[in-house]
Amino acid sequence: MTVETQSLPAGSLARPSFSSDLRALWAVAYREWLYVVRYPTWALSLLVWPVIFPLLYLLTARALSGADGSGLAQFQANTGVGDYVGYIVVGTTIWMWQNVVLWNVGFSLRGEQMRGTLESNWLMPTRRFTYLLGSSIPHLLTMMLFLAISAFEFAVLFGVRFEGSLWLAMLVVLVSIPSVYGLGFAFASLVITAREANAFVFLVRGLVMIFCGITYPVNLLPAWMQPIAAFLPQTYIIRAMRSAALSTAGLEAIVPDLQILLVFGLAWLVLGYGMFQWMERRARKSGAIGQY
């Protein structure tokens, strides 16, 4: 909602325009970026978690398949993939991506609410969704870094051979972004108004963990659970990423999944935006923006 200049108060230095909107978006992103760099605690976890988290599953898998790997034939029959390490790390990495986005995007607003700066931003004549969008851009960059570091560590430490195509893998990431972040926006809105919303992180996390087949093919799920899996975008992200990064099946193999992901992405972005608007209205009634 940009105002025309003639309705501005006399003497005001503000000159709202389309480019000033963009500059505001950039300013929010840059400010968040400064916070990311000035609280560098996340850097260590960026290096450590990609390796630690899948280990649990990898060791379980090794125990179950026998020291000589004789159980692997069954795995290959179930999944069509021989490299169970690659199979598992793709699943866990996508799971962690969504998980970190929920925390980062969801709690970037919450953190400001607690520090007291959220109200300052809400007082500005800048559109409030610009603000949410801007603060998630730096986290998008750190997550790209996270995915790259993960892939590198898997190749070096676990000997995963990424036989697929880097370009296709990047395409999958790109197409997944709207769903992953749309969920983040929806979540950010919940966190501001519902006090015990971190319970919601655990809920989403658990759902993705069980239903989306992070370490096993979805068709191993009991029949009643499979339709639920079909409604979670992560199911498709994981499947497409496995194909793109680990197999040589090429673009055709993942096109259907990508199409579904685009639809999901659109739906989640719209839902995320809608929930944000709803939260804003609600908070204006309850005063939640200024509370901590």
Partner: peptide, 17 residues
């Protein structure tokens, strides 16, 4: 975690100056 100047520059941009 921002300097005084960074704070003012940030809010100036959000004011569309």
């Amino acid at each position: 975690k921002l300097s005084g100047r960074e704070n003012l520059e940030y809010f100036a941009t959000l004011y569309h100056i």
